[in-house]
């Protein structure tokens, strides 16, 4: 009986350790804590060029992660890339004239969507479109423009 009790305790500890590890992985080491559950709203933004942005890329505001990119498609009507952003529910006070830009974290880091709050009194809500956008910084294009303007001089 005593041995059986010891085994049960050991198994109990084992299961607890395993579940605790899962918990730590989910909460401390992944975006689960940041994006608790799937509660949030989606916005769309159109860009001339999205550079290396991918589905699952982060959406940041002021450097804090507030959501992620859920869909990217090319819109043939406007010849622009249409990016769907999923923003966590707790960040629901972005003014209507907020702008979105695609930036790179560090020199070699991945690309993310940065939200820049505007000044309107109404807030963005589910399904809205962000009209003010700034495309990704694409090295080749910038260099090309630079050379072109130099040549024109």
């Amino acid at each position: 009986m005593n041995r059986k009790g010891a085994i049960e305790i050991a198994v109990g500890i084992f299961v607890m350790l395993g579940l605790a590890s899962l918990f730590v992985l989910a909460l401390k080491m992944s975006n689960f804590g940041v994006l608790a559950g799937n509660n949030g709203y989606t916005l769309t933004a159109r860009f001339e060029d999205i550079g290396g942005l991918k589905v699952q890329s982060p959406v940041n505001a002021g450097g804090v992660r507030i959501g992620r990119v859920t869909r990217i498609r090319y819109d043939q009507e406007s010849y622009q890339a249409e990016v769907t952003l999923f923003i966590n529910d707790q960040y629901n006070r972005f003014p209507l004239d907020s702008s979105a830009g695609i930036f790179t974290s560090g020199l070699l880091g991945e690309q993310y969507v940065g939200l820049e709050p505007g000044a309107e009194e109404d807030f963005l809500k589910e399904g809205d479109t962000i009209t003010l956008t700034q495309s990704a910084f694409v090295m080749e294009r910038v260099l090309g423009q630079l050379l072109y303007s130099k040549a024109a001089e």
Partner: peptide, 19 residues
């Protein structure tokens, strides 16, 4: 270390798939 990890590891795509 922690914040970059949190930003990069997706709980569904990475952790659930790992499980």
């Amino acid at each position: 270390f922690w914040s970059q990890m949190q930003a990069k590891i997706d709980w569904h795509d990475d952790i659930i798939n790992g499980i």
